[in-house]
């Protein structure tokens, strides 16, 4: 009998609060508390319970009855209240509120701002420079040999008249160092240009962030530390990076930076073309020839520089596999970045 009573209570506890109208509630009241209810039925059968359990069973029946009555009363007042105010206001809370617009920053510029903020927090200053550059700043001062293929019109956009569109943000290194004495701790960000056919992984117009630090006693450890701090913040705390020997005219030693694939964690997947690593950009210790060019004593000062593609970082962060998505300006894409 005890189990039966508990069962009834459980059922009432579920059904009463979820009931939606006065009429349904009245039906439930008759069901649980009416003369023909199962509780009344059980009460009439109390004589069948062994004598010593009878008072206990009677008390249980009463408590349950009271609780159900209370549940019904509570529900009644809730229903009443709802009806009163809704009727007065003619309110339908499911109708849409006043649509206040929210736009979105372009995903590329969102990442750009985030990158700037990370480096600002690391104590870097942000320098901006011209996109239309001279060959001197883009190549010569950066120790690029005259035979270097990057100088070819197949790779670099030239303007009528001989100036060019910067192929990297590195010319700002020279402009800043020409003007200021060490310590230098800057990033330069902005648009760069290279003659590249538009395809899923190339655009002729792209964005770079370049970091430069020059002071006494700057070592390759400082370079790795700055880069690690950055990749761990922009991706996640367990992002690993590695340096691969490479050649850049303006750094010595030079390296390419890889991070452990953020999609497969190095296992090998489509994103990293099964290599387990993702290429992020170039880095190195500033070539003494570059320091000398701007009038720094390369025996006294050392420095590091690294450059990263902002499109690349945005694509990895958002899982965009085709770089062209970043210039289509399709609202179906942009509205995902609210």
């Amino acid at each position: 009998m005890k189990e039966q009573i508990q069962e009834i209570l459980e059922e009432a506890r579920n059904s009463i609060p979820s009931c939606g109208s006065d009429k349904d509630l009245e039906e439930l009241r008759i069901k649980y508390l009416g003369k023909k209810s199962s509780l009344s039925d059980l009460l009439s059968k109390i004589g069948t319970v062994p004598k010593e359990e009878r008072p206990q069973m009677g008390a249980l029946l009463n408590t349950v009855k009271n609780e159900i009555a209370q549940l019904i009363e509570q529900k009644k007042s809730v229903l009443q209240e709802k009806e009163d105010s809704a009727r007065a206001q003619g309110l339908d809370v499911t109708m849409p509120g006043r649509p206040l617009p929210i736009g979105a920053k372009h995903p590329l510029y969102q990442i750009w701002e985030e990158i700037e903020d990370i480096f600002i927090n690391l104590g870097f200053e942000v320098a901006e420079g011209p996109e239309i550059e001279s060959e001197y700043y883009n190549f010569d001062a950066l120790n690029t040999p005259s035979w270097h293929p990057a100088r070819n019109p197949q790779d670099t956009f030239y303007l009528k008249g001989g100036m060019l569109l910067r192929t990297q943000t590195s010319p700002m290194q020279i402009r800043v160092m020409e003007k200021f004495k060490p310590p230098i701790k800057i990033i330069s960000t902005g648009r760069c240009y290279r003659v590249d056919k538009v395809d899923p992984s190339h655009l002729p117009v792209f964005h770079q962030v370049e970091a430069l630090m020059v002071d006494e006693g700057i070592t390759m450890s400082d370079l790795k530390g700055a880069l690690d701090s950055f990749v761990k913040r922009i991706f996640s705390a367990d992002t690993h990076s590695r340096f691969r020997p490479h050649f850049f005219p303006f750094t010595e030693p030079s390296a390419e930076i890889d991070i452990l694939c953020i999609s497969c964690n190095g296992e090998g997947c489509k994103l990293c073309k099964n290599s387990g690593w993702l290429e992020m950009g170039g880095a190195g210790m500033v070539d003494p020839a570059v320091l000398e060019e701007v009038g720094y004593d390369p025996e006294k000062y050392t420095g590091y520089a690294f450059g990263l593609g902002i499109e690349r970082i945005a694509m990895l962060r958002y899982g965009i596999s085709d770089i062209r998505k970043l210039i289509t300006n399709d609202l179906r894409i942009l509205s995902q970045f609210q």
Partner: peptide, 23 residues
């Protein structure tokens, strides 16, 4: 940086979407 961010954020709160075109 401050002016650019203020202007951009303001326009976004007015419902504008930012676009990015090549030069």
């Amino acid at each position: 940086r401050t002016v650019v961010r203020l202007a951009k954020n303001h326009l976004i709160s007015l419902g504008f979407f930012e676009v990015n075109n090549m030069s």
